[in-house]
Amino acid sequence: MTPRLRKLPAVIAMTPTIFFVVVVIGFGLLWTLWTSFTSSKLLPNNDFVGLAQYARLFASDNWQVACVNVALFGVLFIGGCLALGYALAVALDQGIRFEDAFRTIFLMSASLSFVVTGIVWQWLFDPTFGIQAAVRDWGWTSFRFDWLTREETAIFALVGAGIWQATGMGMVIMLAGLRGIDQDIWNATRIDGIPAWRVYIHVIPAMIRPMIATAAVLLSLTAIKIYDLVVVMTGGGPGISTEVPAKYVMDMLFQRNNLGQATAAATIMLLAICLLVGLPWALLRRAK
């Protein structure tokens, strides 16, 4: 077989994929971009209005709140998942008994959908029904746990539920990194008399940087497209205090029949995702 013939099955196998990527995703992207420059409402039209949709978008209260929220959510959620995930990974790395069982338990929440997580945490956070009501029934009557129903704190309730859900995934990725550390490193630090906790804080993170970057990128994708958790837990409320960009797009698209706004917001989200995914990898490459 000539080399070209040998490649033929691969070409045949890939052609439909390439076709769909180009046509469906490529065309979809271009159409979205174009529509964001038009005055489209319920039906798409070709009435060019320049940057008017973007002007309205950035002047909108909902969008501003949404951007602040997703940034806050992103930083706390990714930071929380990485820190907690690393701590759990280190704990599991101590050669403890039943490690497999623990790993499965910690990872279990990641197999749930955000809708399930959202409902469970909504119940837990509900002041008349969840943790607050339970603790008050036990006799501590001034106990307050009403994050979800207050404007200033509702976003942190979302962060909490998000971290509970996604920590396991960060843990598994970083645990894989820890398993890849050469035993010689440990021997060397032991000879130098460096306590293990200092090695875990100062030495190991630099060595498993690719794993941390992978986990961070995966988590940041979850964070930027966060939608289901918000819809289930707060619906964007109280008021508009937990609006997020993905919800803005969906509301504009399906409730408010405003294609122009929806596509403008979606375009900005796409730009943000490109930056977020590109940045860690670029930094990593430079570090090498």
């Binding site: 209260d61 909902n62 409320g237 508009i240």
Partner: peptide
């Protein structure tokens, strides 16, 4: 339009919760 209606309910809900 649904767009304006939704903007009104946002304003009302925001006022209520503050």
């Amino acid at each position: 339009t649904p767009d304006r209606r939704a903007a009104i309910s946002d304003a009302v809900a925001k006022y209520w919760s503050d």
